[in-house]
Write a protein that binds this DNA or RNA. Sequence first.
DNA 1: CCGTGTGAAGTCCTTCACAGCT
DNA 2: AGCTGTGAAGGACTTCACACGG
Lengths: 208, 208
Amino acid sequence: MSEPAEISPLTLSRLPLYLRCLRQLQEKGTTHVSSSQLAQQFELSASLIRKDLAQFGEFGIRGTGYRVDELVDRLNGLLGLDRIHKMAVVGMGSLGSALARYLSVNDRPFKIVAAFDVDGGRVGSKLGHLIVHHSREIPEVIPETGARIAVLAVPASAAQKCYEDLTDSGIEAVLNFAPIRLKRNPAVRTKSVDFQIYLEELAYFLRS
Amino acid sequence: MSEPAEISPLTLSRLPLYLRCLRQLQEKGTTHVSSSQLAQQFELSASLIRKDLAQFGEFGIRGTGYRVDELVDRLNGLLGLDRIHKMAVVGMGSLGSALARYLSVNDRPFKIVAAFDVDGGRVGSKLGHLIVHHSREIPEVIPETGARIAVLAVPASAAQKCYEDLTDSGIEAVLNFAPIRLKRNPAVRTKSVDFQIYLEELAYFLRS
DNA sequence: CCGTGTGAAGTCCTTCACAGCT
DNA sequence: AGCTGTGAAGGACTTCACACGG
């Protein structure tokens, strides 16, 4: 059972989820877990877990379940989380700063190597031991730092321009928080997280 | 063509997206748009747009397309965005504060009516003209304010407890930002936004 | 003639059910 | 006996293609 050329997007979106659940189990000291236990505790589907995992080899033990540590390692490897990812953050407003704190926790593989803003009050200030650059320096600084992934947390009006500067500078993946539909660069993995849209979706259930 | 009892979750997730695109068109002064124009400009599927919209009535004009203003109004109505939603925010750390700013922009129908935290330095401080309450006051304050929707932006370790306090207090929908898999209350619409997971998903494409 | 609305076809994803391993 | 791995069945969603209305 060798690894397929392409993981289906829905399977891919669940792998980090499984990882999160398994990490919670690790903290509790659980060493083995079955698909049905996982399903019950975390409101997942047992058969789906098995199908998802079985795509990448047989690392379950029939009659017993999965070894938690092994599964964590395997998923970390599959997702490329077993090494450091250098990350840039563009937009150091309240959201960008908060994201910088939340996304670069020490035990996680994402390390911020560059930060940008256009606000004179923030350019030159420090984020940890990093200096915040002006966004116009993206084309020079990104290649210097070797960042391959970027978080975009600028106002909607500036997002498309920043996005293009980033992708032109060699960034390969962007996580966008600006509330706008970006015109995407097909060579760059782009994911948008839009809080307003999530709220609007929830609002539907409050029409009563 | 009357409205169905249930919208499929995937259709529902696209309606706010269409709304976002349409608002962008409104700002540019566009009055009419066809499904294929929408599809091209915003990288959507024309036939899917038509299918999604047609579920709620025939408000396209054959040969012409859709009237932007009318469609915006209709979608706003469908999603329950044509009235104010009172919202509570729990967790006034950097993320909670940033979210409070981003989600309660004036032209949006979500209005923050209560804020909570456990940190002595933040309890009692002001968010606009609102006082930040201690989280232990959730059971009293939520009913007083009439909030029906809540944003949860507390550390993972506190999330489950806060979630339960909120749902026990009558909150009907929760947007969770804590990086944890919540044990959900089935009576409450719960949506989780997990930045770490999104990054991990992107990391998969950077394994090279 | 253009674009919507919509059955039909096609694709993708999930659930089922059980053979086979431990 | 228990649980994984997996073909087969079932379901959900999307795309196709065209009839119909403007």
